[in-house]
Amino acid sequence: MRKFLSYAALSALGVLFLLPFAWMVVTSLKADAQVMTPVPEWIPRPLVWENYTKALQSFPFLRYLGNTLVICALAVIGTVISCALPAYGFARLRWRGRDALFFIMLSTLMLPSQVTLLPTFLLFRWLGWTDTIAPLTVPAFFGSAFSIFLLRQFFLTIPAELSDAARIDGCNEWMIFWRVVAPLAKPALATVALFSFTSAWMDFMGPLIYLNDDNKYTLALGLLSFLGRYTQSFNLLMAASTLITIPPVVIFLLAQRAFLRGIALTGLKG
């Protein structure tokens, strides 16, 4: 009985959570005449796949996809390298000032991004980096407090004996990091890579303030300008939204465990 009730509740709520998705896809396949009907219709008749080709043609989807992927790739590489090293320093080494710096790092999590946004913007403008991908990628190479924290939590769980054994074999810290800890931390590193990919994919404010030339837009920004031009063509808008939603959803479904573990890791030991 209890099992049955749980299934019933989970399914009912699950349908509510899925409904917006379903409606997005259904709308994206409708003919213009069927989009705005007094009573919403759930079955597109006929199925208009051309909405997708139309959406793809009415803004440079592939170019924006390319721009976005370049930014995502650089963000992932930068974040993984620049977070794994500090995380190792905070988790596996004992040194003077470590705890103070770690505390400072954690407190930067509380700092609203708006406080640093404007001077950073002016700095990049002064460097002549506006309208390039540099402001969106270079900072990724300088560590992110959240990911360093996540990795540190994971590194702490790796037994110290393994490092000690390597030290006795004459390894220096760099070799221990590279040959012992990093290979064991692959799942956590994958989680950080996933997070940085999705956050770069979804980033909106960064491209919005740094990119003016519409050849350099990312998908998120492209969708916004598309929205400006097709305010009422909800079938085309839903087709474009579906297109930019598919990659993160596919990645999430493939790498679910890494995602969920990462979130749990940061939330619990907070």
């Binding site: 699950g14 917006p20 409606w23 997005m24 709308t27 998120a220 929205l227 839903m238 930019i244 993160p248």
Partner: peptide, 19 residues
């Protein structure tokens, strides 16, 4: 299913919810 909406890009979910 419950986590899925959290991976949608905010711009896309904003467009979807306007509809």
């Amino acid at each position: 299913i419950y986590y899925l909406p959290a991976v949608i890009p905010t711009v896309a979910s904003a467009v979807l919810w306007r509809w």
